[in-house]
Structures are given as C-alpha cells and as structure tokens.
Design a protein around this nucleic acid. Structure first.
Lengths: 164, 164
DNA sequence: GCTGAAAGTGAAAACCGTTTTCATTAGACG
DNA sequence: CGTCTAATGAAAACGGTTTTCACTTTCAGC
C-alpha cells in the first residue's frame, strides 16, 4: 500500500527503463508491506515471488525506487539503521516500536517549532526531518502498558549487530 | 563546546574507568568542534594530539561517550550517515547544510504536531526524532541565496561512497 | 515471429567501515 | 616495587553494500 505500483512502473518506463520480472517482485515486496524492511528482508520477501532473484538486483532496484521517490528511509527505534519503507506522498513516518509497522502522516505544521528554533539558534531553517515513534493501534490495544520511550538508548552503542 | 569536558572526565572516573591520554585526545577532538564529525574524522583530529592513537580506541571511546550521553547521532543533509556531534542537554540538532555546523535547540514543543499525528494515525506516540536543517548565521550572511532544500536528494542513493 | 542493441541480471570478488581478538602496556592502589 | 585490572593498537574477522563481468532478457524495428 501507500505506493501505487502502477505509478512506479509507468515512471520506470517513462525513463526508458524496463519492467522486469525481478523489478516487479521487488516493488511488490516493498508495496505489500506496511512494515519497514531492510534490504535483506526485501530480498527474502521478493524471493518468494521470484526465487532466482539476486541480492545485487535488490540493491539496484532499491536505488532506482529511491530515485523515483517511491521509497523513504526510516530510522528504527534502535538507532540509525537504514531501513526501507514504502511511502508515497510527502509526509513523515510514525514507526511502531513494537511491531515495526510504519504509517505516514501528512498533516505536519512545523511552523511553531521552526519559529522557536529560529529564535533560539538564528539559523535560517529550510528543512526538517521528523520521525515519530510509539505504538500502533493494534499494539497499543493488546500489549497495553509496555510503552517504552526509545528516546535515549540504554547502551550508547554506535552500530547494532544483532538488532533484527 | 557544548560538552563540558570536565564533566565527561568525572563521569568516566565515577564509573571506575580511567582517564587516559587517548581518551583525553578523543574527547578534546569532539568537544573542540561544533561541526559534526565521522568516526574517521574524530580519529584524524585526535591523532594530532596523540599520534599513536588507534582507530579502535576511537570507536571504543565514542561508544563510551555515547553511554555517558556526551554524544549524539546526527543525520547529514546527504542521507543517513551516522555522524558524531557533540551535544549536552536534551534537545534537537540543527545542521547547517553548508558548513556542517551543528547547533542544538532545546525549546521544542511538539505538542501540536504530536496531537495532529495521533489524530491522523491513531498511534500512541511516545517519542520523536527531529532534526532541522538550514543555514547557520555565518553561512546565511555570506553565501546569501544558496539555500537548497535538502528534503529530496537528487540521486536516490542508498549509501554514499564519497560523501565527505 | 525474428533480430540485434542495450538494459538487466546473478555470482563472485572487492570494498570499507566497524567490531573482535589477543598479546602487550599502563594506571591505581596497596 | 608488585599486583591486579583497565586500556591499548595491530591485525584479523565480520557484514552489509557495491563493482565487475560474462551471460540473459527485453523490446523496438523489421
């Protein structure tokens, strides 16, 4: 969801590029999932459609989808892992700390915040990166109470090893 | 600046750890610069103080500083590079697209935004990651006009190679 | 339906930043 | 001084990403 699959394919052909079996599989894998995925997870998912798919191709397709704008990067609750969510319109991501689902929200009036920051720092602010985290509707409903705040990570680790 | 060097050292000794020549050099390198640095850049800077410093030690010290809370991760204008800025209080970073300087701002009332997002997505929002970008006072003053918006990267690349 | 040029592909190798390992050094404290 | 432990650097290991290269597929033009 979120990404219009047809749109992606027409963008691809519009660039004089080709719509291949492999690209279909990767696009489908990304579009099917509302959970953010790592390149490897995309690979595994897409491989179910297309068993002879190579990881190399996944990376290449991901890059292509990035150029087209059908993909957005998201930072997981556990640090700065570069992940692979689907996204369509301009908006920001809300990531569920519990299940990893990513939802977008578009209504974002940062006016007040930007003004406050301008006042405080003097910068001429031209852009912002915002990502919210919390519990999605389902997770909030079931595991009620386990709402950790992921703001400060307990360990100050730089990079994860066994994060996923 | 921003980090109190003495504070860092007392935190280190409070944990029963030692203040060594190498750690001094790394802390100084990070504290001296208001520009965000990569681990390698920290290494190079610290090495001027302490030529026999090893990169391994830089990583270890960076991790330690992360635990202490004297360090914060920042995402550069060019994507999801994990960088190494200095930071002290809780706050958010404002990154200058032109010179890389990082300033913090603490006054952050995300109430409205969080409420809007809750309304739109239904998530129970518990945390946020916000980073602003723009031009710092100096860069705005001199190169007036060159305010690119870094929101959408021209190439959709996943990882950088020669970004810095 | 062919055909041929160019895009696309997969496997393996290369790359590069980060982490581990391990033998050695240096601090702290008696 | 001696001992115990933290800390260090070099080198190797690791793991995700990118490049290389020979081969295959797509697709426009016949």
């Amino acid at each position: 969801m979120a990404v219009s699959v047809d749109d992606v394919f027409s963008q691809i052909t519009a660039r004089g590029l080709r719509v291949t079996r492999q690209r279909r599989a990767v696009v489908a894998a990304v579009a099917d999932s509302s959970v953010c995925l790592s390149p490897l997870e995309v690979f595994e998912a897409a491989r179910r459609d297309c068993p002879d798919l190579g990881l190399t191709t996944v990376y290449r397709t991901l890059e292509l989808l990035g150029e087209i704008g059908a993909l957005r990067r998201v930072h997981g609750a556990d640090g700065c892992e570069r992940l692979v969510p689907a996204g369509s319109t301009h908006g920001h991501a809300v990531v569920c700390d519990s299940c990893g689902r990513v939802t977008e929200f578009t209504e974002c009036d940062m006016g007040d915040v930007v003004r406050a920051a301008t006042r405080e720092t003097g910068y001429r602010i031209t852009g912002h990166f915002l990502q919210l985290s919390g519990l999605c509707v389902d997770c909030a409903a079931q595991g009620d109470g386990g709402a950790r705040t992921p703001a400060a990570r307990p360990d100050g680790r730089w990079n994860e090893k066994g994060s996923r």
